[in-house]
Design a binder for these strands. Sequence first.
DNA 1: GTCGCTATATATAATCC
DNA 2: TGGATTATATATAGCGA
Lengths: 155, 155
Amino acid sequence: MGRNKLVMKKIEDPISRQQFYSKRKDTILKKSNELAVLCDTDVALLMFSPAGQVTSYSSKESVEDIMVRAMNKSVNQRYYKPQVENISSVQEAEAYAQFLRSNMEQIQQSKAKLLGVQGFLQRNEYPAVNTEDTAAAGKLCLLHQGSDLREAVAC
Amino acid sequence: MGRNKLVMKKIEDPISRQQFYSKRKDTILKKSNELAVLCDTDVALLMFSPAGQVTSYSSKESVEDIMVRAMNKSVNQRYYKPQVENISSVQEAEAYAQFLRSNMEQIQQSKAKLLGVQGFLQRNEYPAVNTEDTAAAGKLCLLHQGSDLREAVAC
DNA sequence: GTCGCTATATATAATCC
DNA sequence: TGGATTATATATAGCGA
């Protein structure tokens, strides 16, 4: 959009990349919300900024609950249907393989990870993490009224 | 967009609602993918159609892994920093309180839920989801009431 | 349900403050 | 640095086949 057409390739300049992220993130949040409200359905969204900041959105339930519910459906239905346009065959195949793999271990892994997290809390420690990767984190919430945008930030 | 401006209200006609969902879903998937590729970041998206069909998208890792990673970040950071303008003191305080409360129980709850899911999977059943309860206990958030956008951001 | 069409609403890349 | 502007690319609402 805009003056020039978009090129589907990673933006190399860090500054431009971050600026691009900030703008697009808002649009996706807005559209996700429109979908959830107009269709009265559950939508969950998680986005990591180039710096590692996490932005989440969930319509009714929490992101976790929506994911868990979707997970159950997927597992019970036992099928995966990629529905993203502009995706190469290779990517699609990889996505499918990835889904199957995670499907087989998702429960065990999630459990293990959560237990690991719990351990950190109990010991009051922070895990060693890649700075760039974990610039920020978070969980919850929101607010902002009076405008058409409510936002919750947890850093 | 289109001939008329969008009204932020649930589409009552089931057929129109489904059609709206189908079109918008594709756009959101496309934009999510553009964000992930152009910024080389992780994005996870889950959408339930009015009929209950789940559409998921994840850039690199699986939706579950991305969520768990986002969750771990929030837990390990342990602080909350509202960054939204136009927010009342009362709302801010409440949001903060909510964050602290959920922070204390998120792990236990998530663990319990996931373990519950595991049980359901083994029995090949669907879990009963308590929307109100999960929303309140939520870790990532929620919001909205007649406004134009719900958003929760975790840094 | 699906597709195409077209006028209009939005999103946004580049640019300029 | 973060907004405001502007020209252009996209998305889409309402229809119709």
